[in-house]
Design a protein around this nucleic acid. Structure first.
Lengths: 339, 339
DNA sequence: CTTGGCACTCGCCGAGGGTGAGTGCTAGTG
DNA sequence: CACTAGCACTCACCCTCGGCGAGTGCCAAG
């Protein structure tokens, strides 16, 4: 793009009108709806250049122009101010989120909220286990030789696993191990806990060692190693609103949204301190999402604890969605910090 | 229906062919694909009667017949044997479900499984809290005057709630209360625990009474009273496979599926000991589901612990879906019984 | 560099006609 | 009396065709 301001204006006009009306926009329409102070013919010349540079296309010789992924990209990169939410919206968010009774509830509420505000499908990932630290570890006696270990993090996640242990244990054994686990782990980041957990079996009475080994293996395999983080999705129904945008690939989009792995990767990519991330159309790694755009961001300390975002047609209101995503992420971060 | 066997055969043929081909079925097609031993004209007479009785319709004067909701109903009521799943399928189910590490995981796996086997959208509800009994209650110190209470049921559900308490508590206080809560509640059904919980504040030392009251309120409000049970859904993408069946109401269907309340009621209706429940089209209470059929069943003791089911077009393979739902419910029941 | 004018392209829309599947009816048959 | 064969009839579907109009690309002039 050779420094021509008006061409940028024209692109912006095309994107805005197309987003608003869903219809290809012609030179005449631009002259009428935006006062750029030039005639339709001039616009046409600019459009011809924009097309040559790959920012817009023609479906047919004689239909208006439509932005390409590349055009949206340029447009998004130009967005400076994220039209702030209305105060009514902010109040609604606050009211809705602070009513949550626990982490699960809060994340479910967030995802609904985000879906409703943006009118898109929304995704929220749980706070990453590896970046959380241990608040409490609990042992529960299920049967003479079967134990459940419950781990509670500072972000409010509660994870539990059960296993058979190689010998019967009594109440005292459990008390010993519980104390030990807690004194060793409370306050430790899960990502830093590998070595600590490894040492634990050494630290107990010989007779308890096999039992402790099983428990540590459980902790390790289930909670530390795999980083199998969870996500919540909502507002999938909103995708049908724009069904004509992704033609018949709606099925593919829904499948991608149900594929935890794909989504996790997606959200993870937004988990960095630099604010809102936008992936447009073909920029998305997941094949099912090639016809969509994803607006995502991390939340929590350094925006690194977890992520959230919305998925919608490339023809979306980027500025509004970016603002919504940002706002909700901030609220979640604040609520998590408060505990 | 005046006891005419062949008419039933004709209805069955129409349903089967329509389910298989998605196309209205004519008299000629029936003669060719099913050997009923009569001519097309005879079939036509039967069809005219079936139509008069409301079991099938005509879209246009000259297109084949299509079953009505009522026709499906009659057809379903005739189903005696639920074509059992192939042994490969049974093995797959077994393998897939027994790999689960905890309740959440098992239910998520179940729902995926059900969706995959039936090629429909699937729903599984968590084991009802009120029908579960307490396995363990745990108190966790979050801050000097903030506690978290964690409740673990015999079905593996883990629920936690946090609250500020009216005074600071120390480790000993917590130990006392923990012991008390456990001795009072372990083994008690949540639905029977109301009175027990109400008495608890009386039973502790005067100074702890206000604290205990808060905890009991938490237990009561959050866990006993509302029966706010959770559900998991999956395979929504399968709905797009049959998109032409519910025309443009796909959005409505998705919305209904996201509406926890609606779904819960739906699944709850199937929670009785009598086996598989089928709701066809207009029989469904939820408006969004009027164009779908729901095949559901309860699982667990007396089929009363929770429920699961599939949601799809009325044009579905009822026998197969009923079998799948039944089988998965049995596996879940067995796994839960085992702990 | 911009503008007005003009020829041209091509998708969309509605009308019209042919096709064929499937019906309903009626007269005939074991 | 139930079943069958034949036949006229009905419509949805498909294709074609012409008219329309939006929008373009180009050009010559300001």
């Amino acid at each position: 793009m050779s420094g021509d301001d008006r061409k940028l204006d024209v692109l912006r006009a095309i994107v805005e009108d197309f987003v608003a009306t869903r219809e290809p926009v012609g030179s005449r329409a631009i002259v009428e709806r935006h006062h750029l102070g030039v005639s339709a013919a001039t616009i046409r010349n600019d459009m011809a250049q924009l097309e040559e540079e790959g920012y817009i296309t023609h479906r047919h010789t004689s239909a208006g122009r439509v932005p390409t992924d590349r055009g949206y990209r340029l447009f998004v990169d130009q967005i400076a101010d994220l039209k702030p939410l209305s105060s009514a919206e902010r109040r609604a968010i606050e009211r809705f989120l602070t009513g949550a009774v626990d982490l699960d509830d809060m994340l479910r509420r967030s995802v609904r909220l985000l879906a409703q505000v943006t009118q898109q499908a929304a995704v929220v990932s749980y706070p990453s286990l590896s970046r959380s630290s241990v608040r409490h570890v609990e042992l529960v006696h299920l049967a003479p030789s079967r134990l459940m270990i419950v781990l509670i993090t500072d972000t409010g996640r509660v994870e539990q696993r059960a296993a058979d242990v190689p010998r019967q244990v009594d109440v005292d054994d459990i008390a010993v191990m519980r104390t030990m686990l807690n004194s060793a782990l409370v306050g430790v980041r899960l990502s830093d806990s590998t070595s600590v957990v490894g040492m634990l079996p050494e630290a107990v009475d010989r007779s308890l060692r096999p039992v402790m080994s099983v428990l540590c293996a459980l902790l390790f395999d289930a909670l530390i190693e795999p980083a199998e983080d969870r996500i919540v999705i909502g507002g999938a129904a909103n995708l049908t609103r724009n069904t004509q945008d992704f033609a018949h690939s709606l099925g593919a989009v829904l499948e991608a949204l149900e594929e935890q792995v794909v989504l996790l990767k997606l959200v993870d990519e937004a988990v960095h301190p630099d604010g809102v991330t936008v992936s447009i159309g073909e920029e998305n790694a997941a094949p099912g999402l090639r016809s969509t755009s994803v607006v995502a961001i991390g939340y929590g300390t350094d925006n690194r604890l977890g992520g959230l975002g919305v998925v919608g047609p490339t023809r979306m209101d980027y500025a509004a969605n970016m603002a919504a995503v940002l706002t909700v992420a901030r609220y979640i971060g604040r609520l998590l910090a408060r505990g």
